[in-house]
């Protein structure tokens, strides 16, 4: 009876939820999404620089292209940050962090660099963003017990990425 009464109150006023949260263990994690997103940030900065270097009149087409590059840079910087947060928070467990005690500082650095590359067009910061995520990828694949290799991405800006050596 008390339960039924509370149900009515909940339906009318909406009681606060206390989440007894479980994660659905889909097990599908891969830092490549973050790595590609970080590469995209570098690519957008390069495209912005190319556009600027052409000089000439600032036409509607110029502003249209520039705003699109900025928009994609924003989106992919945030995407990279979100992907890293999920792997860090959901996949990595205490034993992984014990083996790689630098992980927390590295994730914090990635978050900071991700914000910096949104706020600026600093290519050097974008390169650091890619490399920090590469280091995170090395930790991730080590946690999975899979060796890695470094190879240049087969598309501009052709930066070196960490890949699982499958």
């Amino acid at each position: 009876m008390i339960y039924k009464l509370l149900e009515v109150i909940d339906q009318k006023f909406g009681l606060e939820r206390a989440r007894a949260h479980c994660d659905i263990p889909c097990g599908i994690y891969d830092p490549i999404t973050a790595q590609i997103a970080a590469l995209t940030v570098v690519r957008m900065i390069d495209l912005m620089a190319d556009l600027e270097s052409k000089g000439g009149e600032k036409t509607m087409a110029y502003f249209n292209s520039l705003s699109r590059y900025i928009s994609v840079k924003e989106e992919h910087a945030e995407k990279a940050k979100a992907e890293i947060r999920v792997i860090w928070g959901d996949f990595l467990k205490a034993q992984h962090l014990e083996k790689h005690p630098e992980t927390h500082a590295l994730v914090h650095q990635i978050m900071q660099l991700g914000s910096k590359v949104r706020q600026t067009t600093d290519r050097e910061a974008a390169l650091q963003f890619v490399e920090a995520i590469n280091k995170f990828a090395e930790i991730f694949w080590d946690a999975k017990g899979i060796a890695v290799k470094r190879a240049k991405a087969p598309y501009a800006p052709n930066l070196e990425l960490v890949y699982p050596n499958l």
């Binding site: 109150i9 909940d10 009681l15 606060e16 939820r17 206390a18 989440r19 007894a20 949260h21 479980c22």
Partner: peptide
Amino acid sequence: FRILKISGDSLT
């Protein structure tokens, strides 16, 4: 005092 409704199954 606060009345809360449980959402989820982690304490089943």
